[in-house]
Design a protein around this nucleic acid. Structure first.
Length: 249
DNA sequence: GTTGAGCGTT
């Protein structure tokens, strides 16, 4: 009953979906239920949440059983202040599965209906329009949000991995690394590529001069001196200090 | 602890 959004869509074929915007991030379906239930029969309320954090995204979907009630709710609750914030209620435009929605009502394709007219072109046109609208609003007003970024990033990762996947894609995962590390690793390869070239000679040359050169010219001398008193100053200082201190009262 | 245009889950 009050567990809205807990289960999948019950019966969205005969329901009218309403989109509620500007709801607070802490407002739950239970909080919205009384407001909407007052104006009609609410079939279901769903609040999209972030899959990662689980936080509310700031809007909700309210499904009504009848259009007139939904319309009334829109007219009545649109602009209503809930939880200290003015919400915006309007008919849902897009469906979760590219379903056709008319006035908030989900219109499903009938078997006999599609058997008849060239619905192919009609559908394409509709879809194109919807997607264009979305893209237009998306790329114009604001930039990528955290949620969108995550979504896009994930898709990009998938595609990238598909291409990059040549040897063992699970290798990184097996190590316990998540996909978020991929972004960090993005700049790692760059350094790794240049690293070996610069570090290789260094590493090779480093041990070489120390070991290769025969301890014949100055090595023995220095070695001897350093071996006996690697830190003459330190010792001197210390010795003096200690001496001083020792002699001091 | 934060945010604020938007369109959704099994």
């Amino acid at each position: 009953m009050s567990h809205f959004g807990r289960t999948g869509p019950p019966d969205i074929t005969d329901t009218y979906s309403l989109l509620v915007l500007n709801v607070t991030f802490r407002t739950t379906a239970d909080d919205l239920f009384p407001y909407f239930d007052k104006y009609g029969k609410v079939v279901d309320i769903f609040i999209p949440r972030n899959r990662r954090t689980g936080d509310s995204r700031g809007f909700a979907f309210v499904r009504y059983k009848y259009a007139d009630e939904a319309q009334k709710a829109v007219d009545r609750l649109d602009g209503k202040v809930i939880d200290g914030r003015e919400i915006a209620v309007q008919f849902a435009k897009y469906g979760p599965n590219a379903e056709k929605i008319h006035k908030g009502r989900i219109i499903e394709l009938s078997s006999r209906s599609r058997s008849r007219s060239p619905r192919r072109r009609y559908r394409d046109d509709y879809r194109d329009r919807d997607y264009r609208d979305r893209d237009y609003r998306r790329g114009r007003g604001r930039s990528l949000d955290r949620y969108d970024r995550d979504k896009y990033g994930r898709e990009r990762d998938y595609r990238r991995r598909s291409r990059s996947r040549s040897v063992s894609p699970d290798y990184h995962r097996a190590r316990g690394r998540g996909r978020y590390y991929d972004e960090h690793r993005s700049r790692s390869p760059s350094m790794d590529s240049a690293s070996p070239i610069r570090r290789s000679p260094n590493l090779h040359r480093s041990p070489s001069p120390q070991r290769s050169p025969s301890p014949r010219g100055r090595s023995p001398d220095r070695h001897s001196r350093e071996g006996r008193s690697p830190t003459p100053l330190s010792i001197s200082s210390r010795g003096r200090s200690a001496d001083s201190r020792s002699q001091s009262p």
